[in-house]
């Protein structure tokens, strides 16, 4: 996709807007992750707290990884491919895992 046709800029800036939407999503994920880390490590450090914190970090990194790959794919061409459902599902599973972690932390303390 490096022909002249793919170089035409979309006046609606759709790929850029989608890229920024992914970026906003990672920022939301970061806020939720920081709050999760605070919940996990507040009130003294325990093994369960550290495990929960590590799981939350893994979810956050998963979300970041998906966003990074998608952003790179969006930047590669001017008419990007459809988002692979694999990525969408991965992002959603990270979010759900974060919430499950949170439910366990809330129920614990």
């Amino acid at each position: 996709m490096t022909g002249p046709a793919s170089r035409v800029r979309d006046p609606g800036l759709q790929p850029e807007r989608t890229r920024l939407a992914w970026r906003r999503t990672t920022l939301s994920g970061t806020v939720a992750g920081v709050l999760a880390g605070k919940a996990a490590l507040t009130g003294g450090v325990s093994t369960a707290g550290i495990v929960a914190c590590a799981l939350c970090c893994a979810c956050w990194l998963g979300l970041l990884g998906v966003a990074h790959r998608r952003i790179r794919a969006l930047a590669a061409t001017s008419t990007p491919e459809v988002l692979a459902p694999r990525y969408a599902t991965a992002a959603v599973l990270c979010t759900v895992a974060l919430a499950v972690c949170g439910a366990a932390l809330v129920a614990r303390g």
Binding site: R17, T18, A21, W22, R24, T25, S28, G29, V31, A32, L35, A36, K38, A39, V82, L83, A88, A91, V92, T95, L98, A99, G102, V106
Partner: peptide, 19 residues
Amino acid sequence: ERTFLAWLRTALALIGGGF
């Protein structure tokens, strides 16, 4: 895809609110 991401942000905001 952007609509999907907006809903995902809503979900993350709700989860952050829970925390």
